[in-house]
Nucleic acid binder design. Structure first.
Length: 272
DNA sequence: ATCGCCTCCTGCGCGC
DNA sequence: TGCGCGCAGGAGGCGA
């Protein structure tokens, strides 16, 4: 479900919904078998800790606590909601805060997971070790970086963009969108990228991620912000989910090819 | 090392 | 209406 803009939207929502100096009173785990088991003594680790703030790295949502970091990956269908009116199937975690607010993690497919990382060296955790630059970090995510990373790669551009070692946060929607904006076919080999094309791709990845964050993410069916609102970026999608529709630029029909098992949308006229 | 296929899991929409 | 099939926003693991 969530790519970087959706996780960032959830992060911002949580930051607004949780008052400064609030703390985690109790933690209830209804199912421990998420993608990875909920860690041993997870509840005790979190309980009693003050919530310092909310961060994000790649698609990881991070609750910064006074003694450590509560890491939450939303997988495909994970959501955090404040005070949902009635309990639902697939509510796996519940955090009761000192303020009385209740935050509930719901995840039907259970591809998401949680972890608890102790300070001070939580940033060295295995979850972050292999990650590339943030797409909105202009100083690290550069044309030169992407160009160098792509040398010798025979994989498709689309798979290359979705590989979190090259750039983080780009998933199936935004990979198709950025490639459309850059005029590059998703099937093209990464190693054949020219320096100018690498630069263009960096610009378009940056732009699409930035605009999607501003729109509150993309709601295809079940993505929700922490307060329950939908995102709006789906209205700005050029190719994702538009197979057979006329390209907004040239009116040629959008096509859909499968690349490493994922639907990949492109305009056969605008992209080469 | 690199690449692509498979897998985890549930729900939904479609065609018959 | 009901059923089976394919597909869905992620990404680790494995075999080639």
């Amino acid at each position: 479900m969530p790519e970087l803009p959706e996780v960032e939207t959830v992060r911002r929502g949580l930051a607004e919904l949780v008052a400064p100096n609030d703390f985690i009173k109790t933690v209830r785990v209804h199912r421990r078998d998420l993608r990875f088991p909920v860690p041993f003594r997870f509840e005790q680790s979190l309980a009693g800790q003050k919530i310092v703030g909310f961060r994000r790295r790649a698609k990881y949502l991070l609750w910064e606590l006074d003694r450590g970091v509560f890491l939450s990956h939303l997988g495909m269908t994970g959501t955090w909601r404040r005070n949902p009116s009635n309990s639902k199937l697939h509510d796996h975690l519940e955090l009761q805060l000192g303020s009385g607010d209740r935050f509930v993690y719901n995840d039907p497919r259970r591809f998401g997971f949680v972890d608890y990382l102790e300070k001070p060296d939580w940033e060295d955790s295995k979850w972050f070790r292999h990650l590339g630059p943030e797409p909105i970090d202009r100083s690290r995510f550069t044309g030169d970086h992407l160009y160098q990373r792509s040398r010798g790669k025979s994989t498709s551009l689309k798979a290359f963009l979705m590989d979190q070692r090259n750039v983080v946060g780009v998933g199936n929607i935004y990979a198709s969108e950025a490639l459309f904006l850059a005029g590059l076919r998703p099937t093209r080999k990464a190693g054949r990228l020219t320096k100018a094309q690498a630069l263009s791709l960096v610009e378009e990845v940056h732009a699409v991620i930035q605009k999607a964050i501003e729109a509150g993410g993309t709601t295809l069916k079940d993505f929700r912000q922490a307060g329950g609102e939908t995102g709006y970026f789906q209205q700005q999608l050029h190719v994702y989910g538009r197979e057979g529709e006329a390209c907004g630029v040239c009116a040629v029909a959008i096509e859909n090819v499968t690349i490493t098992g994922r639907s990949s949308f492109f305009c056969p006229n605008c992209q080469s």
